[in-house]
Amino acid sequence: MDNNNSSRETSERSGPTRRVIVQGAIAGSLAGLGLAGVAPLSRARAAADASKWPKDAFAQKTEADAIKALYAGKMPEASDKVNLDAPEIAENGAVVPISVSTTLPDVTSIAILVSENPFPLAANYPIQPGTSPMVANRLKMAKTSKVIALVASGDKVFSASKEVKVTVGGCGG
């Protein structure tokens, strides 16, 4: 009993390495039994599907390329119907509260870009019919930068932007 407890503690302290080895061993033994088709680490099926994640757009290193990847070359038009709420000065770049709302009709997505971040696209929200075209979240900002809100409405893209000053960056060590 005591033995058992202490070994469990050890495995927790030594981090993932031991667990990985154990899982590997289990997977190996299952494969040996001809059960390779049964995923040994299968989890409860979740709805969130990583395959739909817009990898291309998130990988772009400039604002223009990210916009191109998101909207297939459509250029955004500045619009006062896009309401971007961000602070003038963010004391902590690691947590900058930003919200976007719009009065435009038929909104299909809202995206937020931080121009000076290593990867400008921060978040993209497809908007379902029945969901209000409004979203609030918190983003990291490497340094003082323009923040751009993009709203796809009908077959056009509209934007609003704001300069946010950052005193302590959120992407450095």
Binding site: K52, V114, T131, N137
Partner: peptide, 24 residues
Amino acid sequence: KAVFTAYWGPAVSKDPYIKFSFKG
């Protein structure tokens, strides 16, 4: 039915927060 989806990059803050609203 999916009412809201978020695609996030690494620029979203630690312990992320999200707010939205929907009808129905």
